Amino acid sequence: MADRERVIAYRVAAHQFDRTTTDPARLRVFDLGLQDSERSAVPALAARLDVVPPLDDAFTLTWTVRGAPHRHRARDVPALAARLWPLGDADAVARMGRPPVTEGLRVLREVAAALRDVVTGPMTKGEASARLTPLVPPEVTGWCRSCGATHVLDPVFRLAVLPAGLRFDPDERGVVFVPLEDRREVPERAEGFGELITHYLGLHGPAGYAEVARYFDAPVRDVKAAWPDDLVPVSRKAWLPADRVAAFENPPEPEVVRLLPPLDPYLNARDRELLVPDAEHRKQVWRVLGRRGALLVDGEVLGTWQARTSGGRLDVTLAPFVALDLDMFAEEADRLARARGLAEARIG
């Protein structure tokens, strides 16, 4: 295999698109967390599991990586706050949306500690924000035109939720916070970020400092300083965990056809030029507005798709980049419909 072909084949296998795994907790995507924005988690699981079970209490939903809602194994969440804690003051300020502060870590710790004290039981985001705002430095608050009120800046609020020990109530339609069962104190420092680096490389590797930094919104120099010593270089600028090198050297042929949702973990790797070499096609796959899913054929992203519900049916519109037999996606559309609780699907 050529270098790019080998990387693609490795990643398809690492993402477990072969559907041989039956327990969702054993999916490697949960090592980093499964993003669940715009109902993206269920179709991502449908691409990897033969049957998608309900995501029960074994999984926790909260704001984590890049301030986005992710589902994590519940047992992983208590330690995750320290793993995702900013790596320095500049990192903290950047992740908070660059408010006019210099001691980013101290300010974030104050906000998270205050939020932890405020939310002692189920509480809506609006109520939590209203109670939190007068307790934090004014530099991290601002006037919100849509709310007609001054409150904590949204990036600051999102960044503070996990270290405050909060999760979402999955049974509520809006954002309702619930304290974690194993709630810990606000972290004093980052601990265990190297493990997240290893998880990223295991799923999205081989990769280097820049890709990992972009994924976690962290400074490259801090990522480099936290780089684990036991990683194996497979090229001048790319590493893998030692236990994944053999899988990279001899990956299976990536013979899969999938309808990947927008924000699928496969699409969240930060070397987009490798995944989709054509610049115009990249613009379609990673649209800023009106996100679309990706047509995955044997490891290659060969088009986009959109879906809407019509009664009990899922209508899937395909937009391939090259000539394709669209019927090859019929079974995947049916799987996606069932995972979303619909009776049938239609492609076109």
Rank of each mutant, 00 (worst) to 15 (best):
R335K: 11
V52S: 06
M96N: 10
E110K: 15
D117A: 15
S146A: 10
V111Y: 00
R270S: 11
M1F: 14
A225Y: 00
R6T: 09
L132D: 11
G208N: 01
L267V: 14
Y215C: 04
A13M: 00
E5I: 00
G194K: 03
A339H: 08
R28Y: 02
A333W: 05
P179C: 03
R73I: 00
A130G: 12
A160G: 02
L34Q: 06
A128M: 13
A130I: 11
E139K: 07
R291P: 14
T102G: 14
P24I: 09
R340K: 15
L132P: 11
M96D: 06
L162E: 06
A9K: 02
D50K: 12
A319F: 13
R167C: 15
D229Y: 11
A190M: 09
V101Y: 10
V7Q: 07
V65Q: 04
R338G: 12
G104Q: 02
D91A: 12
P170K: 14
A9L: 03
A2T: 06
H70I: 04
R66T: 06
W239H: 04
F216G: 03
V232R: 00
Y209F: 12
S40R: 08
F329C: 04
R75S: 01
W239M: 01
L342D: 08
A79M: 03
I347N: 05
